[in-house]
Amino acid sequence: MKRIPIVSTLIVLIAVGVMLRLGFWQLERLGEKEAMLARYEAAQATGGEVRWPEAPSTMQRALYHRSRLDCRAADTPTTLSGRSAKGEAGLAHVVTCIDAEGARRQVVLGWSRDPAAPAWSGGVVTGWIAPGPRLVADPPQAGLDANARPDPKDIPNNHLAYAVQWFFFAGVALVIYALALRKRLHERTPRQDGLQ
């Protein structure tokens, strides 16, 4: 009978170990994502206003809080597909807000079905800090309708599905290798067949 191939077995076991580690890592990320989403929902529920974070490292903690920007000027108007506060599909009107220090921030002025850029040259804007980052104006500006409020539930949380996939891949790899190994161990060489 043939012996178990050591190198092939080690390679398969290492690959399975890596897949299992990736599965457990996705479960860790699931817990982190759930905590982050709970933090975002709590921030939105308080409705308390925070300063616009200057450092990118502090932006994540500020998401879904209310904030304000003093836009001394506005340029590069553009539109993105968006939804109104009533759930209607249309366009979100976005401008680059330039503050007193010359920093450039993205501001979603409001929603409409009209793609034409509204006339808006700046001012104090209050609203919600959304991923991007951008400030979603609330109340809307430039005579536009209200955009849908940013919702943490829109952030995908598919880490559990990824974990299940990695565990499934590891299981499949073990089953396939076990079947191949079984076939190899049960095969006989021509010489052994001739002796029987």
Rank of each mutant, 00 (worst) to 15 (best):
A137V: 03
R184M: 12
V172A: 03
R134N: 02
P150V: 00
V175K: 05
R182K: 12
D145S: 15
I155F: 10
F168Y: 11
P150D: 01
G143W: 01
D145K: 13
Y177D: 03
R182S: 14
E187K: 07
H159E: 09
Y177T: 02
P133A: 01
R134S: 08
L185E: 06
D145H: 12
L185C: 11
F168N: 11
K153G: 09
N157I: 09
P156R: 06
E187S: 11
A142V: 02
P150F: 03
A148G: 10
I176F: 13
H159L: 08
F168H: 12
L135P: 02
V164D: 15
L135N: 00
A163D: 05
A180P: 06
K183D: 13
K153V: 10
D145I: 12
R188K: 12
P152F: 01
D151C: 08
A173L: 04
E187Y: 06
A178C: 08
W166V: 10
I155M: 12
A178K: 10
N157T: 07
A173W: 09
K183Y: 13
F169A: 05
A148Q: 10
V175F: 09
F169R: 10
I155G: 10
P139V: 09
P139G: 01
A148D: 04
D154Y: 12
Y162H: 04
F169C: 10
G143N: 06
V164R: 15
P156N: 02
N157M: 04
Q141K: 07
L144P: 00
Y162N: 01
P152H: 00
P156T: 00
G132S: 05
P150Y: 00
A163N: 02
G132C: 01
L181S: 03
R182A: 13
P152Y: 05
Q165G: 01
A180C: 14
A161K: 14
Q165A: 09
N147S: 09
H159M: 08
R149F: 11
A146I: 07
A146C: 09
Y177F: 07
I155V: 12
R182M: 14
H159W: 03
L174H: 11
L144V: 02
D138T: 04
A161C: 14
D138E: 02
V136N: 01
F169V: 09
N158P: 11
V136Y: 03
I155Q: 10
A180N: 12
